[in-house]
Nucleic acid binder design. Structure first.
Lengths: 205, 205, 205, 205
DNA sequence: GATGAATGAGCCTTCATTCAT
DNA sequence: TATGAATGAAGGCTCATTCAT
């Protein structure tokens, strides 16, 4: 039985990650990746159907992980709404920041790939996709508020989208600026304070 | 000496703009640009030393304009500080939003180029550069506050950077999402409220 | 004005022809063609959008020429029918053989390309296309015969197709076997006798 | 020594046949064949030294069978000549058509491979090879005629070759056009009439 | 024997840039 | 100045064949 030489896939992925990080998806060269990995172009194609799939392989687990993490935090939120603790919603809505930051730092390179090197792949809209997910969730949340006859200042979807986008921008900037995990968490704390105040200012009637 | 045919540069730039907007800097083809402009690749190289310079020519005025606008607002700010109206600083600090939004919409395509099509050029960090400018200004502002023995909660440069980045992200997203000028201004109003509250929450002791 | 260096196109086409003749379309290499022509791959792409277009350029004039020649001989045939000289039809139907043979020999290499090296191009069915044209014409001819109440043994379209195919096979084989023009014409004479007898045998009631 | 797993060779050949029929020799992929056969590329190379040998294995029996059939009919012909029934020679010469058609239809796929999918293999001249055999036989036949002082119009070898080639072209076209066996036999009947007349016309003095 | 990973030459094509005209 | 032909490196990808397991 012909077995894949052990470690080749790992080496290829490691070198691919380096190349993608250095040059971005588009300018990365499979030739170079193969050479760096002391392997061959063919060896890549045995493992990945094409260039984008190689990128995907590096990044997809984290994309799914992010979505799962998001889905989980969404459920949590709904529980809270049911209990009607509106005043605490701002707290709760972002209580998972720390968790997310940690997740990011557990997968730092992947996030760097997603955020800064994914131009030309289907992941180029990663931030926007995340934002859209959260926007939908906010709107569902608002529907519940309405149902419960709780008054609030409703914004247009687009405006929420932009505000949430700016929120994630701030989070993800820690990656671009190579913050340490500790500093990122510190920043998240500030961010929470900042955004809670902001949301209150425009949301509460 | 033969003179450059009049209007060719303009036509080239117009067509280059279209091409860059459509495909982004990297995927744009000089051949296509020259063809669209009913001119030649050589004609481009007479006027611009390379591909990136052509992009620069389209975008640099607005980059400078933005910096100038920023410099102006900075002076303004200092005036205010001199007058010591700290309580109004949040207001003032962003009173120029509308002006900036209008500037963006007066140069909509250029901003789209800078924000969404500049991957592969030195402008890929445009937002960050703007943010850095503003951060420096904020720090100078803080220096004055300190000088005046006005107490405030001083943040680390990096944290301010990220917050300001998120602010600009939100502003610039109106470009990505093709808001009308009116909607953008509307959004700016919300943004002002939101960020004023945010800044207050973390800045005021 | 940048002019194409004289003779490059010709040299490229000449070398392409040689390469296609030697290896067939599929196995021909643009690299090799460019090298043989002491030119560059890019130089090919200035002139021809792709590999098949290069092949087309060599061959298309003759394809059109053949169709035109065919169309001309068709008109001629109809004149004859109008005069009702059925008995001479076999003669006339092929009286243009010599002309066709000469046309083939005026474009010997092109026919060799079309007949033996076109696998992988849209010309791979060249013979069948010619045959189909002639079959249609035969059927139109028969329609006229019926109109004139002239009796004959009508065959199925498929059978005519195969017989005509075999006729052209014989004509085109002179190319595969590198007959001289004179020998080809000699063969055409035999072919005429042979096929006239054949057609008579199955066609006349 | 380990034994070849039974049935694997058969399965490989079956799948190879499908692949070759579908894509032709050149575009067929050994990888695809191995996958279709739920086997491996290595398994192919154990059984066949290379790609062309795999094709050969599919086709060679029929190539030999055809040659044998031809040899048989040749002997038959000589018997007839010995009996001196020249007038019947045209009949007899083709009396084996039906047999050959049936043989083709008993091995339809193989003939399709030989006639339409063999580009790039040594079988690309299959038809010509068959024709050459028959031409040789015709010439031997003529030698006998001469020996018997029977007069006839002797053609050049090349001309006979082309005529016979056209004859086989017509026969083999039934494969390309997917005639049913019955239609093919029907066509063979027409062909016999047609060619007998043709031969007589040029052969008899 | 069987496997399929590994190889690497080779494919067609694109493109920014140079340069002869 | 203006042209666009010429260049040639580089791109992603395929594939028959070899060979270690």
């Amino acid at each position: 039985m012909a077995k894949r030489v052990e470690g080749v896939t790992e080496k290829l992925m490691k070198c691919a990650k380096e190349e993608f990080l250095e040059k971005g998806f588009r300018d990365a060269s499979l030739r170079t990746i193969a050479e760096k990995a002391e392997s061959s172009k063919g060896a890549i194609y045995i493992r990945f159907p094409d260039k984008e799939s190689l990128f995907s392989a590096l990044v997809e687990p984290v994309v799914q992980g992010t979505k799962n993490m998001y889905a989980a935090s969404e459920e949590e939120t709904y529980d809270v709404i049911d209990k009607g603790f509106l005043n605490q919603i701002y707290e709760i809505s972002y209580k998972s920041i720390a968790g997310f930051i940690n997740y990011i730092y557990d997968n730092f390179d992947c996030f760097k790939l997603l955020l800064m090197c994914s131009d030309g792949t289907k992941y180029s809209n990663f931030v926007d996709d995340i934002v859209t997910l959260e926007v939908n969730s906010v709107e569902e949340f608002w529907a519940i508020l309405k149902q419960k006859k709780i008054e609030f200042n409703e914004l247009k979807t687009e405006d929420i989208h932009l505000l949430i986008h700016s929120y994630y921008s701030s989070i993800f900037e820690v990656v671009a600026h190579d913050f340490t995990r500790e500093r990122a968490l510190e920043h998240a704390h500030i961010l929470k304070t900042f955004y809670n105040a902001g949301w209150r200012a425009i949301f509460v009637i």
